[in-house]
């Protein structure tokens, strides 16, 4: 057993570094530009997901709303919180678009149609995006410094699992156009 001790020690160090240290290094938490509360908007303004995350006329998904949409209500501060004041001062007044960090951005070689999944597949937003619509604070955005994508980005395995579950296995070209 004694001769194995250095080997086991090396393995233990690698396991510790790989499971505990590596994720901290590779997943950098980046804050969102604005302290945004989905909960406040849903509860107080009665907003639904597609009020802000709308489909365009051609059926494509618009993603995060542009500043114009926010400024429709927030032309002047709506409340006295520091976050509200910062948003007005830094973005609305100078007309500067917030650079939202997307949790779900897919690689360039992936084509994902929201309209096909929501209108044809009748999926709810929560199926893929979880309960983010009811949270009071935006989760940290973990960006992978090598790939440039978010840790939260849905993987191909998840797509395949759901399609398989629903007996909707199609060709590679459906997503990789």
């Amino acid at each position: 057993m004694k001769p194995l001790i250095p080997f086991l020690a090396g393995a233990l160090v690698a396991l510790g570094a790989g499971w505990a240290g590596f994720p901290r290094v590779i997943d950098r938490a980046r804050p969102q530009p604005v302290d945004f509360s989905h909960k406040v908007h849903a509860d107080k303004a009665g907003a639904k997901c597609d009020d802000c995350h709308a489909f365009r006329d051609d059926g494509t998904f618009a993603g995060a709303p542009a500043l114009d949409k926010c400024a429709g209500c927030h032309a002047a501060p709506m409340g006295t919180t520091a976050a509200e004041k910062a948003f007005i001062d830094q973005y609305v007044t100078p007309g500067r678009e917030p650079q939202w960090r997307s949790y779900a951005r897919q690689p360039e070689n992936v084509f994902f149609s929201h309209v096909a999944h929501m209108k044809l597949g009748k999926l709810q937003c929560e199926k893929c995006h979880g309960n983010i619509g009811t949270t009071d604070k935006l989760p940290a955005h973990f960006e992978d410094p090598i790939s440039g994508y978010s840790r939260q980005t849905m993987s191909m395995d998840a797509c395949i699992a759901c399609h398989r579950e629903n007996k909707l296995e199609h060709s590679c070209m459906d997503c990789h156009k």
Partner: peptide, 22 residues
């Protein structure tokens, strides 16, 4: 032996597979 152990241990962590994907 330590290096060999570290190499084997690393294979049982997400690090190499994540680096390949990234």
């Amino acid at each position: 032996q330590i290096i060999a152990g570290a190499g084997v241990g690393a294979l049982f962590t997400p690090a190499p597979w994540r680096l390949v994907r990234d």
